[in-house]
Simulated scan of single mutants.
Amino acid sequence: METKRTIIAIPMGDAAGIGPEITVKSLSKEEIYKKCKPLVIGDASIIKKAIEVTNVNLSVNIIASPSKGKYELGTVDVIDLKNINLEKWSAGEVQAQCGQASFEYIKYAVNLAMGREVAAIATTPINKESLKAAKVPYIGHTEMLEDFGGAPDPLTMFQVRGLRIFFLTRHVSVKEAISQMTKERVRDYLSRCDKALQRLGIENRKLAVAGLNPHSGEGGLFGMEEVDEIGPGIEAARQDGIDAHGPVPADSVFFQALNGKYDAVLSLYHDQGHIAAKMTDFHRTISITNGLPFLRTSVDHGTAFDIAWQNIASSVSMEECIKLAADYAPKFTSDSL
C-alpha cells in the first residue's frame, strides 16, 4: 500500500540566486517524489531557465492550484506568479524585482498553508539586499512568517541527522546574549522547546541545556552564570514537569544528543549551536521555524550570488529540507504554542 504523500510548497526564492537551481535539481530526484508532492511557487520562465542551466530532465507543468498538480517524477508542478521580467533580469546580482518576487512567493505559500491546501512549506534562500531594494518591509523569512502567521517570536530549531538544537538567544552580541541568560528565560524556553517537540510528534521528550562556561563553570570556579541563572532555570522547568537536564558542558552535550541521549539541546547563544550543527554536517543542517500555525523548514544557507546560475550549487540541503518537511508533516499539529 502506497504511503500517503502530502503536498509541500516550495517558494523558489530570489530568482538571481541559487534557489531555482537547487529546486529543480532536488525535484529531479526520485526519492523526493516517493516522500511527498512538491509544489513550486515561483516564476515559470525562471524555472525553465534553471532546468536548462542544470541540464536536468524535467518538464514544467503550470497549474492554478495545488489540487491540479501531477506530482510525478519528470514533471515540476509550478504555480506561476509571472513576476520576473527576463529582459531586465541578471544572474547573481541584487535586483528589486527579485526581492519583490521572492516576497510574493512566500506570501502565496503561506496563504496556501493557512488554508490547509499544502501540508508544509520548504523555503529556499532570499536576499536581504534585494528585499531592501524592493522596499519590502521585512529583512528575512522569519519576520515575514511571524507577521503572516500571527505568531510573535518564533522558535528556531536546527536538525541535522538525529541532532536537534534550539536557541535561547539569536542575533545579538555575546555580551548581550549572556545578559539574556536569566532563570526566567531558560524556564520559558524549555517550556516552548518541549511544546515544539510535542507538535512534531516526539514523545517522552528529554531536553538538555548547554553550559556557558568551561565545564559548565565547575560550580562557580569559572563563572557564576550556571549557578545563579541557568541551573535554577532548568530546575524551575523540571518543577513544571519538563524532563530537562544540565547545564551539560558544551564540549560534550551536542555529541551526546547526536547519539541519542537527549531529544534536543537548548543552545545558549547563536554560534554555540550553529557550530555544533554545521560541523556535524554543513549541507544537511536544516532549520525548522516553530510557533507558526503551519510547518516550515528551510535550508540554512544564502543565495550564493557568487556561484549562482553556474550549475555549481549543491542541492543536498534543499533535498533534506523537503524530506524533513515531508517526514514531520503527518505528525505536526497546528495547536498554538
Rank of each mutant, 00 (worst) to 15 (best):
179 S>V: 00
56 V>T: 15
299 V>F: 09
181 M>G: 02
221 L>T: 09
320 E>P: 01
59 S>C: 01
81 L>F: 09
264 A>M: 00
102 S>A: 15
195 K>T: 07
208 A>S: 14
155 L>Y: 11
7 I>H: 10
109 A>M: 07
117 E>K: 15
275 I>L: 13
261 K>R: 15
98 C>K: 05
96 A>I: 00
231 G>S: 08
110 V>S: 04
261 K>T: 11
229 E>G: 02
124 T>E: 06
191 S>E: 11
195 K>L: 12
21 E>M: 03
69 G>S: 05
208 A>Q: 11
168 L>M: 14
174 V>D: 07
10 I>V: 13
125 P>H: 07
90 S>H: 12
75 T>G: 01
166 F>P: 05
155 L>Q: 05
183 K>G: 00
334 S>L: 08
331 K>N: 02
190 L>G: 06
265 V>E: 09
121 I>E: 10
186 V>R: 00
110 V>Y: 08
11 P>T: 04
324 L>H: 12
131 L>S: 04
315 S>F: 06
102 S>F: 02
79 I>V: 14
43 D>S: 05
330 P>R: 02
30 E>K: 13
10 I>N: 08
154 P>H: 05
144 M>A: 11
209 V>K: 06
23 T>V: 14
184 E>R: 08
151 A>F: 02
249 P>L: 06
105 Y>P: 10
193 C>Q: 06
36 C>N: 14
85 N>R: 13
77 D>K: 06
54 T>M: 00
18 I>Y: 03
137 P>G: 00
177 A>G: 08
327 D>G: 03
237 A>H: 10
42 G>H: 04
37 K>V: 02
95 Q>L: 15
89 W>F: 15
70 K>H: 13
14 D>A: 12
264 A>Y: 05
306 D>L: 06
70 K>N: 15
239 Q>D: 14
